[in-house]
Simulated scan of single mutants.
Amino acid sequence: MKKKGEKLQGLIFSLPALIILFIFTLLPILYSFYLSFNKVNLVGDISYNFVGLGNYIKALRDPRVIVAIQNTLKYVIIVVPAQTLLALLLAYILNSGIKFQTGFRTLLFLPTLTSSSALTMIFMFLFSVNGPINKMLVGVGILNQPVGFLYDSKTVLYAIIIMNVWSTVPMFMTIYLAGLQDIPKTMYEAAEIDGANAFQRLVKITVPQLVPVTNYIVMVGLASTFQLFDQTYIVSGGSGGPNNATLTLSLIIYQYAFKTFGTIGYASAIAVVLTLFIFILTMILRKFSNENVTGEGLD
């Protein structure tokens, strides 16, 4: 009876959060899934015309959706490994006992305290034709003349990649720092006695011990990078330009949902595909990480 009472109390205390989660998360997901099978008119007399898998088939044949998938995958493939590796290296350096490490931590963490929109505006200035980056590259002789990084389809996505890596690394660095604090110092001392240098200690002790932290960071990174929207929206003005170079899945969902008449069902289908893709990748990574942890425990 006591256990049942405790369970009931727990349910009562968590009920408000569960209700909010149901109303603002689960219901919209279910409604979006329903819309993805319909051609919807939300103006005037609201109507739903069931089209089955028509929206999904159309998405697979849509050249703009294919471009959005390519841009998103390119962004994910570059950003996730880069931000993970840089965060680990910075955390390792800051945890090594260097001077002024508290000040360095504060400075490196500052980007996370700034809104994404403000950071995007700052980087648009930095990468502008008359911005500091162009002046520096021309000054050292790397460029003969300023380049419109944000107006060239070959460079604009890479400028956004640099911006996002710079802005996300501090948060992941902080998580790695917390993980490093849990590694017993005796392991490093024993390795040092055995003659292991700093690099060997990093590869043989630090990296394996941080596998669960790394798996978490990669999963969070995958989920966030696949949903890239605000930076590409601000840089391109919502168009996905130049020449669809900044068109991502989240941005094209927005365009079809709010900028094109009668295509909200189609936008919902793309959103469902994106959600399923993120979910499947996350589950695969989670299963892989669990197997690694289990294997390490058995060893």
Rank of each mutant, 00 (worst) to 15 (best):
A68H: 10
G265V: 01
I142Y: 01
V211C: 06
T248Y: 05
L21E: 02
W166Y: 08
M219K: 13
T112K: 04
K287N: 10
R64Y: 12
I29Y: 13
F104C: 03
G237F: 01
Y56N: 09
V213W: 01
F33C: 07
V220S: 09
L157M: 12
Q209N: 15
I57R: 10
F127K: 03
I278D: 09
V220H: 05
A191I: 13
P170F: 00
I46G: 00
L180Q: 04
F24K: 08
Y48Q: 01
Y266M: 03
G241E: 08
V79E: 14
F50K: 07
M124R: 09
L89Q: 02
Y256L: 06
Q101G: 01
K7T: 10
P132T: 05
L274I: 12
K2H: 13
L157V: 00
F50R: 05
K154D: 08
S128P: 14
L143R: 11
N215S: 12
T248S: 15
I175R: 02
A245C: 02
L35S: 02
F24Y: 13
P81W: 13
P132W: 00
A257G: 03
Y266S: 07
I142H: 00
S47H: 01
G139R: 03
A269K: 12
F229T: 11
S96I: 12
N134I: 05
F109A: 00
I161A: 08
D152Q: 03
I284N: 08
I252M: 10
M1L: 14
I175P: 02
A257Q: 11
L110H: 00
S117H: 01
I66T: 14
S32R: 10
F100Q: 07
L86P: 08
K4C: 07
P132C: 02
Y34V: 00
G297C: 04
L15Q: 04
A87D: 04
G240I: 07
V129K: 14
V293E: 07
P242H: 06
